[in-house]
Design a protein around this nucleic acid. Structure first.
Lengths: 370, 370
DNA sequence: CCCTAAAATGTAATCGATTACAAACTGGTC
DNA sequence: GACCAGTTTGTAATCGATTACATTTTAGGG
């Protein structure tokens, strides 16, 4: 009976280092050394230990090892919305880099809900991860505690969180948004709309500011730009389109702060019988793969998604290793990709540039798709 | 100097249960009890402990707790391809369910590369997760060891892995693929193409078999169906389209085993100047959000993505709790959603059904989009 | 055969919690 | 004041590894 009990518990993860030690007739220390530093172990014990290991199928309990070593070999990745294909690709980049260093990813998906942050602050507090990669553009907090005050190595991707003493890997949202404005102005547009990200979001603020900066340089008042609230998701694009259709004074060009919003906006207009780019020109942001697959293909700002992830992960690994330099900003290039969703407005003549031509800016040169 | 050393190490996660015990003038046992079972602790010690906890900001080290409890409160989710929006949504469902039970997700992304399986077999072996959710339709293996022989609680989502003694949450790929065939036959199509999933993939096999079954019932030989190899991704759709364009004997209707392939296939044909559904009707599989956003909207098989995730996670939690029933199959409904990408072939007259009408089958009734 | 340095091994502390068990304390009753 | 039952608390083992330090073994030289 006692034996059957033991066997039941054995079903999971029973062979321990002690079992191997007994089997091989050595101490646990020798077993551990054989596995970690075989050069310090005599050939004789080495083979005995190794045989015991293969015979039993022993695998060290990593949880125990990590407790001893005060590390977990796990990274918490806090992501605003897992369903957004932009982030999915960034995650792939992160994972590629982490895998090389032996780290695994725990995904902290917020689903765009700030109240979910607390769960991951708790996770980070309790010593279950060695570092945090933050893709949210804000400092996650909860239970009165902020993730910043944990003293855990962190790195930010996609957005610079002000006042954070940690590296950030970003694109220059503002500068490339100026290029967007210049591109649309160059096509001859004069009445603009903007579909925003969530209020307070840093990327949103920068993209909006850059767009208005660009327009202002051409003498267009920011107040004249129609602004639809959004949350980077498909629903926001649809809602913006519904309002657009109700209006008398329709903009001829709309900049959406994400591709998902741009695509949903465009589709809703097309379904309503409008033409793109004939009636409206549309520009997105992110450069997700589907931007090239919609009809017409979307003009968008392409971010180096995979590399944002890789570089962010690398920066975090440096912080963990202690070789990082704390706060610093790594800027990756973003590129305006001109698709078929932008053209001169129907009534007017193009003022400078012909349709479908990239407008380079000092920050990021435009580039023809393909 | 000793003190400065202590302080340096303190930077991360220093305050331990012993510190609290000292501060409150009680033993570690009392601290632990205060936090877990306060009813067994006198009010006097309780307040002293609690005060010490708030003063120091103590958080229990979960790694240590888990070592003692022989669990990790983490689930490994093995996913074929994180960038596929279908899986992203399943993951959200999984996370919603796991969160309620206090579990966190470690993502095992294979990027469609079988050689990456070994990494996660190792992870699962080493006692770092309490269970595995497998979305891959096969048993991950590596280093000569298969994930099945680990004795870890497992559950499969999306595909039934033969011979596995674990629950599986799936849709009936085969039955709904018969409906796809019936829908296309009903529109009058007689020449068909099929873009497949990866060779050997179970979903692929079932979808292909169901499609051919449906065609065979109408007297169409499976050998007459053009079959393009694919891997569920965008590239496969493009490749298939390139071959399609080269052919003389073009099918009039193409069934793609995933939406991504269908969308890429469609876009490539449109770009080449063909009309959809005028020249070719196209059907996808999965029901990702972008299927509704492409032009024309895609006819596709909608899977209950979020619920597949939820139910799979729930089944796994049952297995972990010991209340599961081992092998069993939970079938969720899949629905053929008729979009604008299917219509009667141009030359022929429709034989039975008019265009854009759902063809119900005994397995899954068709349903008009919206 | 002894001595010494180098090599190999073992002992036991440690990581930070939980918990069985024993011990100490409390209050009430006679 | 003794006794008992019920509370409360502390001691120490435990989870499964790693590793500093001590100890033993080995090899080689004289």
């Amino acid at each position: 009976m006692e034996d059957s009990n033991r066997r039941r518990r054995a079903s999971r993860h029973t062979v321990t280092i002690q079992d191997i030690a007994d089997r091989a007739g050595v101490s646990t220390a020798t077993v551990s050394r054989t596995l970690a530093n075989p050069e310090f172990v005599s050939v004789k014990s080495r083979v005995r230990v190794l045989r015991a290991v293969t015979e039993t199928g022993y695998t060290p309990n990593v949880a125990a090892r990590n407790l001893r070593a005060r590390r977990s070999m796990k990274i918490l990745v806090v992501v605003p919305n897992l369903a957004n294909p932009f982030f999915a690709e960034v995650l792939r980049g992160i994972d590629d880099e982490l895998a090389g260093a032996g780290y695994d990813m725990i995904i902290g998906n917020l689903d765009n809900l700030a109240e979910r942050e607390a769960r991951y602050v708790k996770l980070a507090m309790s010593g279950q991860v060695d570092g945090v990669l933050n893709l949210t553009g804000r400092v996650p907090k909860g239970d009165g505690r902020s993730m910043a005050e944990l003293g855990l190595p962190m790195a930010g991707i996609c957005a610079i969180v002000p006042g954070q003493n940690s590296p950030h890997v970003v694109v220059n949202d503002r500068a490339v948004s100026v290029s967007v404005a210049e591109h649309l102005l160059g096509l001859g547009h004069r009445r603009f709309g903007y579909i925003s990200g969530p209020a307070g979001n840093i990327n949103e603020i920068e993209r909006h500011a850059g767009f208005l900066d660009g327009l202002r340089a051409a003498g267009i008042d920011g107040k004249a730009v129609v602004r639809w609230p959004g949350a980077f998701n498909l629903g926001s694009g649809i809602a913006a389109a519904r309002d657009f259709l109700r209006r008398g004074d329709r903009p001829t060009a709309v900049y959406a702060a994400s591709d998902e919003m741009a695509i949903a906006f465009m589709k809703t207009l097309l379904t309503a019988g409008l033409e793109v780019p004939g009636d409206v020109s549309i520009v997105g942001f992110d450069g997700i793969e589907f931007a090239e697959l919609v009809e017409p293909t979307l003009t968008t700002v392409r971010q180096p998604r995979h590399n944002l992830g890789r570089m962010g992960a690398r920066a975090l690994l440096d912080e963990i290793a202690g070789t990082g330099s704390g706060a610093r900003i790594i800027e990756m290039p973003a590129t305006l990709i001109v698709g078929d969703s932008t053209a001169p407005p129907r009534a007017e003549r193009p003022s400078r540039a012909p349709a479908k031509t990239a407008v380079p800016s000092e920050a990021t040169g435009g580039e023809k798709r393909r």
